[in-house]
Amino acid sequence: MPDDLLRHVIGPTPYSSLWLWLAIALSVLLVGWYAGVFLFTMPRRRLGTVPLVGAARDRMIRYRAARTVRAIGDRYRAGEMSAGAAGEAVSREVRRFLHQVTGVRAEFMQLDRIERSEISPAAPLLTNLVDIRFNPESTLDVGLVSRDAEELIRSWA
């Protein structure tokens, strides 16, 4: 075979790098899918014991509850809500927050049981919120109580 024809012979065609990136993306997507299924199907009680996930979950709960209480206080200060309605909304959000963070069923507890439970630091705030909700002659300012509720949520250990 003459040497001048060797210049027409080439090696195998290399594969496109697109296939490599597609395989990497699909692998990451598969691992993410399994992690998501694992985390979303895990019971809430056990989810808090996972170190990184539990801390992120608590931070998200705290952030969402504080943002909601601030929005209720802003709506009250803007005149969109009455004092009773704002007190009820703040109380509901604080009780929901306490239940999510501690597991104590604060939504259904009376104040005397709250004072004897592990969420007793929240009892004075909840007492003020009950006074605002049910006492039309209450001298408590809903704006200040909502700030206290936001501070309680942000500082809850």
Rank of each mutant, 00 (worst) to 15 (best):
A56C: 03
V31N: 13
Q100T: 01
V31R: 14
L47V: 12
L152Y: 07
R133Y: 00
T13W: 04
V53N: 03
R70E: 15
D131H: 15
R77W: 05
T13N: 10
A85M: 15
A83P: 03
G103T: 11
P51Y: 11
L152C: 01
M60W: 09
V53K: 04
V69I: 15
L6D: 06
L98R: 10
L140D: 04
V28S: 06
E150W: 05
M60D: 08
W21G: 04
I72E: 02
R133C: 01
L140P: 04
F40D: 01
L18N: 05
R7G: 08
A86I: 11
V50A: 10
A78D: 12
S91P: 01
R64S: 09
S117C: 06
A89Q: 10
G73E: 04
V104G: 02
A66Q: 07
A83R: 15
P12K: 13
L20F: 15
P2R: 05
R92D: 08
A65Y: 06
P12L: 14
G87N: 11
Y34V: 12
L39A: 14
V90E: 01
L125N: 06
E80F: 06
G143L: 10
T68Q: 13
V145C: 01
E88A: 13
H8G: 00
A25S: 15
L125Y: 11
L129A: 05
W156E: 05
V145D: 00
L125R: 10
I153A: 09
R7A: 05
Q100F: 05
T41W: 06
T68Y: 06
L47P: 04
E107G: 13
I132G: 04
R7C: 00
A106S: 02
I72M: 03
L126K: 05
F38R: 07
R116V: 07
L125T: 05
V90C: 12
F97Q: 08
R113N: 14
R67N: 13
S146W: 01
A71G: 09
S17M: 13
V37P: 02
R133E: 14
D3R: 04
P14W: 11
E107P: 01
P136F: 14
A123T: 10
L5M: 09
L52K: 11
Y34T: 07
G32Q: 08
G73P: 10
G87V: 09
R62I: 01
D3E: 07
A106H: 02
W21P: 03
R75V: 02
R45A: 13
Q100G: 05
R62A: 04
H8N: 10
A123G: 03
G79N: 10
R64K: 11
A56P: 00
E88W: 08
G48T: 03
G79R: 11
L129D: 09
S120W: 14
I61Y: 04
A55T: 08
L22T: 15
I132D: 04
L39F: 14
P136S: 14
G73Y: 07
P136R: 15
F40S: 07
N128T: 05
D3L: 03
A35K: 12
V145L: 03
W33E: 01
L140N: 00
G54R: 10
L129H: 06
D58M: 14
